[in-house]
């Protein structure tokens, strides 16, 4: 059975959010919104203010200015909030002496679910085998899974996850990716924070990028990708032939030579370059994409914000 959700109840709305710690402004007039039915990456370098923002969204920290609502209601004003919003903030929020199942059972009454729901979510995250083991002996990956299980207890419409991929093995990351996609496809709102874009690149539909507490960009991932410039690295043992190809194709303006016989041609795709080289009969030893990756675009965006300060 697919649950049905009211999309309006799944919108996370951050307006003019500001938080100061003494002289430091950790979050500076930040506004963005998170849409339901999509996976949104909340991105920024370490110390950009991601966790502070999440804490304010969840009513754990009081903003100095601005408002945050989820479905139009402040988190702390919502009765039984864990039923609507599932959030995981830190990987180490467990009592080491409790078993995984007991950890969930502790919160079950407040979330408003039965003990059998605890077993269900343990199965969902693949921790059934470890249900009765003490959390103190868990790996970081297992803790992440348990943290995710905790957020799922109330079958919430909105999921806010702080660095959920941290500590997961490659297999776990693939699993997480598919799981978040599955949840978003059901109409849920899924926000995942990360300090590396590449970690969530294959998962997210939208990005909210912040740096130094300020919004740098909020757009779809596709829009962001459009800003990444393509480039091709072309290597040939025929140094003269390579130079002739570039001159004849009119690429001189956009080409730089890293070494004799090694050219990087910007604003072009590998297919264009490959076709031209083939037509010229040029012997090619390497033809590879060398464009501005999304990751370097991300670094550029977040570091230019630093310069702007």
């Amino acid at each position: 059975m697919t649950p049905t959700f009211d999309p309006a109840a799944g919108v996370v709305s951050v307006v003019g959010l500001t938080k100061r710690f003494g002289a430091v402004t950790a979050v500076d007039d930040l506004s963005f919104s998170v849409a339901p039915g999509r996976v949104t990456g909340f991105l920024g370098p370490n110390g950009a203010g991601k966790t502070t923002t999440l804490r304010m969204i969840l009513g754990l920290a009081t903003p100095d200015a601005g408002t945050v609502t989820i479905g139009g209601i402040r988190y702390a004003d919502r009765p039984r909030p864990a039923h609507h919003v599932g959030a995981a903030l830190e990987t180490a929020s467990f009592h080491p002496g409790r078993s995984a199942r007991d950890h969930l059972r502790v919160y079950a009454p407040e979330v408003g679910v039965s003990d059998s729901r605890c077993d269900e979510v343990l199965a969902l995250v693949g921790l059934t085998e470890a249900a009765h083991r003490r959390v103190g002996g868990f790996s970081l990956g297992m803790r992440q899974r348990l943290a995710l299980a905790t957020t799922l207890l109330g079958d919430p419409q909105v999921l806010l996850l702080d660095e959920p991929a941290n500590g997961l093995d490659p297999e776990g990351i693939v699993w997480l990716r598919q799981f978040l996609r599955y949840l978003a496809d059901q109409g849920r709102t899924v926000l995942v924070s990360s300090h590396v874009l590449s970690e969530v690149q294959q998962t997210v539909d939208d990005v909210v990028i912040i740096a130094k507490g300020r919004l740098v960009r909020a757009s779809s991932l596709a829009d962001l990708e459009a800003h990444a410039r393509p480039a091709v690295r072309l290597v040939s043992p025929d140094v003269d032939g390579l130079a002739r190809l570039i001159a004849a194709s009119g690429w001189s303006e956009v080409t730089r030579f890293e070494a004799p016989g090694v050219a990087v041609i910007e604003d072009h795709h590998p297919a264009q370059i490959g076709a031209a080289a083939f037509a010229q009969g040029l012997e090619v030893h390497e033809l590879s994409s060398a464009g501005t990756s999304l990751e370097s675009l991300f670094l550029e965006l977040t570091s230019s914000a630093e310069v702007a300060r």
């Binding site: 969840l58 009513g59 754990l60 988190y75 702390a76 909030p81 864990a82 959030a87 903030l89 830190e90 180490a92 929020s93 467990f94 009592h95 080491p96 919160y107 407040e110 979330v111 905790t150």
Partner: peptide, 18 residues
């Protein structure tokens, strides 16, 4: 104090903000 020592105060206040 154990809630603060093990930082379980965070999930505690998420489940019950009052």
């Amino acid at each position: 104090t154990s809630e603060f020592r093990h930082r379980t105060i965070t999930p505690t206040l998420l489940a019950e903000p009052r």
